[in-house]
Design a protein around this nucleic acid. Structure first.
Length: 155
DNA sequence: GCCAACGTTGGC
DNA sequence: GCCAACGTTGGC
């Protein structure tokens, strides 16, 4: 079982939005970065744990938990001319962009802000805290995951 | 709004 | 294949 951190701007799509979706599930569309795509395509498995991180907001931080809820499949927004994620270079016969569905699990009783995360010694080497990191999907270790859920008020 | 970091594009 | 220009991310 793997652990992940996935960033989303809450003004665009928040953990609360995810909770309110039909089946509390949403395709993680719009990823247009190869590294992030490769994580979804090659390494994610249904049931993997996800830290749902709110970026570009004040304060940024981990707001909740989700899980991988599908096998990888082609991102339909890449084929949709009206989508802002449209990519003419993605051929439906050989799709360039791949996603998974993400399912709501929990909203953390205590929001774990980026600032709080920076103060946690167990998170010292966490990828999302390294300077210059902009990847919207990063792997997380089990101990990092547990440290954050604990700080978030879950057992 | 600023800007550092970093990914992508395209000319050569 | 190099690398300058450009675009995006995301904290502040």
């Amino acid at each position: 079982m793997n652990y992940w951190l996935m960033k989303s701007e809450p003004d665009v799509f928040s953990i609360q939005d995810l909770r309110e979706r039909p089946k509390q599930t949403e395709p993680w569309d719009g990823v247009r970065n190869y590294q992030a795509r490769n994580f979804m395509r090659d390494e994610m498995k249904p049931g993997d744990f996800i830290l749902f991180y709110h970026s570009n907001t004040n304060p940024p931080g981990v707001a909740g938990l989700a899980e991988v809820a599908s096998e990888p499949y082609a991102d339909p927004t890449a084929f949709d001319k009206k989508s802002k994620y449209y990519d003419p270079k993605s051929d439906p016969d050989k799709p360039r962009w791949i996603l998974v569905d993400v399912k709501f699990k929990d909203i953390l009783p205590q929001y774990v802000s980026l600032e709080a995360m920076k103060g946690m010694s167990k998170l010292e080497s966490m990828r999302v805290l390294q300077r210059g990191n902009r990847l919207s999907i990063t792997p997380v270790s089990k101990s990092e995951f547990l440290a954050i859920t604990k700080a978030g008020g879950l057992k």
